[in-house]
Amino acid sequence: MNRAREASSEIRSVEDLSKLDSPVHGLSPLSKLLLTIVFIATVASFNKYDIVGLFAMILVPLLGYMISGIPVSTCFRKLKVVLPIVLLVGIVNPFLDREIMFSIGSFRVSYGIVSMVTLMLKGMYSLMASFLLVATMPIDDLCKSLRKIHMPKIIVSLLLLTYRYVSMFLDEVATMTESYSLRAPGQNGIAFRSWGSFLGQLIIRSMNKADRNYGSMILRGFNGEFYYCDRVFSKLSWLWIPILIAACVLMRIFNVPALLGSLFVR
């Protein structure tokens, strides 16, 4: 399949995940947004050598994935392009910080290696949490939450339209690249000399399409404010939030793996 079309269908499949029915999907969008922010902030606040404490934090997103019925592997599969970039963060640390922290047998682990792994884990956890948020919350719900916290309607509409437009844009790219490749057999991708006209055409086509879409919207009374989904969320869902935030904070303050370990090892 054409890569652009594949990307477009990936986006739509994430939207399909967000329509599933699970206790996590049923939580109020605002509470999920808040929880994700708190989780990422907590993860980011760990000391760069506190690798053991950080291990416990994976429990939060893992629990979320388990309850939502979304396999963790889906997250890694969907984020296969971004994950390596995140994992590359801190790759130079082992070369800059060579002081030995501890040894495992004859293998000496430097502070640099530990900080590299810590950074990788922080990035991975943040991505896992963000993906869980997106995969359990339709874009309409997200926009509605943002409007509830008084985010200006122009910004929220822009977010929604951009999200919607990304799929259409990718479809347009797919159509153009397909028709290009049909008349350029044997070429791998688009020849450099054609980039200018290709991008120019893409911009013109996108603008025309956006114009027609917008025309169709204003003909049906659009005045800048979208109506968003009216799903009613249980107030009980707000109960989970202090519990989960408390869990994050406790895991930040207390080194849970070390505490658990001390129960068995004196």
């Binding site: 919607r164 027609r212 879409n213 919207m217 659009f222 005045n223």
Partner: peptide, 27 residues
């Protein structure tokens, strides 16, 4: 005045048919 545009893709901008149908009246 209702305008059925030549390219239906340009007219149907909401994810689902029902969402597109109620878009106008709700506005």
């Amino acid at each position: 005045i209702g305008y059925v545009i030549q390219e239906s893709d340009d007219q149907m901008f909401m994810p689902k048919v029902i969402e597109d149908m109620i878009f106008g009246p709700v506005n």
